[in-house]
Simulated scan of single mutants.
Amino acid sequence: MGAAQSSPQADHVVTPQAEGTSVEFAPSLISRLATPASPSAPATGTDELVRRRLAAESAALRTKEAEILSSISSALEKENLDKDKGLSSEVLGRDIEEVREKVTRMAAERASKESPELVAAKEGVVACYAANPNTPLDCWQAVAAFKAEVNKLETAFVKSLQ
């Protein structure tokens, strides 16, 4: 039964007699199907033409992709350079110098804006503490006068903001 199916002369498909049995193919049929078909002139020419076209299209797409990637990367580099220019050490150094100059100017303006009454009250407190190093509580009147002058300046400043 199985000997006839596996004989080397069998080049045909064996069909099973009963349902549920498996189909077996002859080894020569399997080897013929596994080897490439004999090249015929029209089929090979068409296949080769398609392969060449695919290769050309693939190369063109790769070239286009490379161009797009290079343009994107150059645009990103330019954008990053523009951002970095705003954060360079020279720019930051100039900004710091401007802030220092403003602080110095404001301190000088504040010192020049002190009223003569405030200066006199401040000097009175300093003189009192210098005269009474062991009994600083005796200077409460000078301190109260200084606080009153500061309070006047604060009130004037707040009114100027309103």
Rank of each mutant, 00 (worst) to 15 (best):
S40F: 03
A107N: 12
S22F: 06
P36A: 09
L87S: 14
G86V: 04
S112K: 11
T44D: 06
L118F: 03
A41S: 12
L92I: 14
M106T: 12
K113P: 00
I68M: 10
D95C: 11
Q162P: 00
E57M: 05
S74C: 04
V158I: 13
E79V: 07
N134G: 08
L33D: 07
V125F: 00
L49Q: 15
A59K: 06
A66N: 05
E90C: 02
V126H: 09
Q9S: 13
R94P: 01
T44M: 06
Y129N: 07
E24Y: 09
K102H: 09
A142L: 01
V119N: 05
N134Y: 09
R51L: 06
E117R: 02
A4D: 13
S115R: 04
E77H: 09
V13C: 04
Y129P: 02
A108V: 00
F157L: 15
S6Q: 11
K113C: 01
Q141D: 11
S160V: 03
L49R: 15
V103W: 01
M106F: 12
R110N: 14
H12E: 11
E90W: 04
L29F: 03
A26N: 01
P133T: 02
L76D: 11
S58G: 08
S58V: 05
D84T: 11
G124T: 07
E67F: 03
R105V: 06
F25A: 05
A142V: 03
T63G: 10
V125Y: 00
A120K: 05
N151R: 14
F157Q: 12
G45A: 15
A18D: 12
A60H: 04
A41F: 10
L69Q: 15
D138K: 14
P27D: 06
L61W: 03
Y129V: 06
E123D: 14
E98N: 15
E57I: 03
D138Y: 06
S38Y: 08
N134V: 06
L137A: 15
K64Q: 15
A148G: 05
P36S: 05
K85E: 11
P27S: 07
F146L: 12
S112R: 10
F25G: 00
P42A: 07
G124I: 00
L69V: 08
R100T: 07
A43R: 12
A75Q: 14
V50Q: 13
V158A: 14
D82R: 10
F146C: 02
V23Y: 04
T15M: 14
V158S: 10
A111S: 10
C128K: 01
Y129T: 03
S31R: 15
P136T: 04
A107C: 02
L161K: 04
D138S: 15
S71I: 07
C128M: 00
A26Y: 00
P42S: 07
D84M: 14
P8D: 07
S88Q: 01
Q17G: 07
A131F: 05
V91N: 03
S40D: 14
